[in-house]
Design a binder for these strands. Sequence first.
DNA 1: AATCGCGCTTGACGTATGTCATCTCTGCCG
DNA 2: CGGCAGAGATGACATACGTCAAGCGCGATT
Lengths: 253, 253
Amino acid sequence: MRRNHPAGRLPEPPSPIADDGDETHFCRTCAFSGACIAEGYGKPELVELHCLVEHVGPFHAGEHIFRTGDPFRSIFAVRAGTVKTSMVDPAGREQVLGFYLPGEVIGLNAIYPDQFPCDAVALDTAYFCRFSFPAMSALATRMPAVQQRLFRLISKELGMATLLAGDHNADVRMAAFLTDLAARYEERGFSGTRFHLSMSRGDIANYLRLAAETVSRVLSRFRQQGLIELEGREMVLRDPERLRAIGKNLLPQ
Amino acid sequence: MRRNHPAGRLPEPPSPIADDGDETHFCRTCAFSGACIAEGYGKPELVELHCLVEHVGPFHAGEHIFRTGDPFRSIFAVRAGTVKTSMVDPAGREQVLGFYLPGEVIGLNAIYPDQFPCDAVALDTAYFCRFSFPAMSALATRMPAVQQRLFRLISKELGMATLLAGDHNADVRMAAFLTDLAARYEERGFSGTRFHLSMSRGDIANYLRLAAETVSRVLSRFRQQGLIELEGREMVLRDPERLRAIGKNLLPQ
DNA sequence: AATCGCGCTTGACGTATGTCATCTCTGCCG
DNA sequence: CGGCAGAGATGACATACGTCAAGCGCGATT
């Protein structure tokens, strides 16, 4: 069967990177930047927040940021690249928990068990800000905006996990996945209609609790229906509104 | 088909109630009691924690504790009774999010959206401690143990939601559900092998993302296999270890 | 006592999606 | 250049679970 787009590769999408921070300013897209803005720049606490940050990386595709069972000491904000978190269930099957883009935070689910309950693997070259969690907690007790930010980050992640746990068919899951990804790219200032999928079909399938073959079939059908353009891992959303409508049952609001 | 247990009703299980708290002591089973113990009793902050508690109830079966969209001002610790939380998706289908026993806390998923994303309904007569969340946050900034407790409570809920989102068959889901329920009853000092199911088969099915008929069939099979005894909603776990083994893929650790 | 409604169970059947197998394409490496 | 491995697409088939339907038991209402 012929592909329904003209010959030739799609143009390169912009590369998502959020590393515009320095010693005294956060990356604009960082999940913690709101804490600063809320308090006003220049406060002495801000300097402290920066002091407890450590820049780490690069991690290359396939490298672990942390592993299941590692003692929980830090959370990580993605500065550049994409991360997959996953756990291996007692039957030895991998379960993908999430994908994380620049500006997002990984490691929050380690607070309760006090050790990482999952692996985090770079899907492409990735850089991070590492925040010592004890230090951040201590800071949070003096800086209500930081505490608020942490509560909201965890609570938001809880909301996402809840939605994914719902009972939805393959089309809904796939459309919601694409819409969510697009919204997150857009939120961070990247294109919300044109992006690179850093993860394999198998990872997407696993994340959505589908078989890889089902993901292939749904994507093929979406392409036939003119909802998307897709060549390899280069994605163009041709009809974001219909995608949103299809996935609405699984989307917030 | 004949039931495989002798004639006559099962004996009444003990009624789960956790209301042994007073003005200066928390209920032993309360999720917040740890915060006190960690700090040592008698500190002035403890009195403050008690000051921001308001006892509410009774709510009778079917009554709402809060509704979707209500502004988020408080979280609730269950003192007695059982609660179901659920959201209605855009297609109008109910999705049960969880069941909460005495000592457990509801409302944490409202922090991020700043309004309740779900309904909370009493399944039997229920009493609560209501904690003003702003007051509790403020207290948390002065009392690291309270902050820690809140972080851990939300993070734990995140872990549970993640497990439920996994891809597991009906037997695994049902066995894990029963094992988890038993563990939570036991943790609070009630029998972990003999308890009353306050929720309908339909609610269980919805929570586990199965059809009510499937729940009936699985329970019937578990009964035939001698794993459980069940009459109406009175449950006896006859082989908790095998149930745990069946559900292990979905259980923490 | 008769009626009704609801929760629950059980059987028959349909279907969405998983599983297995094959094929293509691409990139990598000797 | 040839061979190989892995990702992805697609078709054929299997199955777990949902849906539909019938029937039972029990408590509430009249």
